[in-house]
């Protein structure tokens, strides 16, 4: 239970960073934390479903459910890709406006955004 609450707090930390920080790169960090917390929860809980690694090698241990691990593998890659793309966009915005602060960027992009 404690572990799950801690992961939940991690998730909320990510969300708060994502919303409250004005720096684009820190926003991306927040998103990465948010995503990792969800992945963490799924894998952590899945690991309680047995004792052994999900490799069939004749050992007597009850293996864990391999599905969460396989699914989260996919979710991790997708998370990395989203992060990379977000950083690329942030870099591009920085080059266009000279700032990483979202309010400054909005202001400098100016009247296209009335």
């Amino acid at each position: 239970m404690i572990a799950r609450i801690l992961v939940g707090l991690l998730l909320l930390t990510g969300l708060a960073t994502l919303v409250a920080r004005r720096n684009l790169v820190k926003k991306v960090f927040g998103l990465a934390i948010l995503n990792s917390a969800a992945v963490f929860l799924f894998v952590m809980e899945g690991a309680h479903s047995g004792q052994g690694a999900p490799i069939v090698d004749g050992s007597a241990l009850q293996i864990v459910d391999p599905l969460p691990q396989a699914l989260m593998l996919t979710a991790i890659v997708i998370g990395v890709c989203v992060t990379a793309l977000a950083l690329a966009i942030a870099a591009r915005l920085h080059r266009a406006t000279g700032s990483l602060d979202i309010d400054v960027i909005k202001e400098r992009l100016g009247n296209g955004h009335d």
Partner: peptide, 20 residues
Amino acid sequence: DTLGETVVLLVAVTGAIGMM
């Protein structure tokens, strides 16, 4: 699903490289 995941990676790489 894995095929979809590799497509996501492809899009991220193409997009990020294009932007830079």
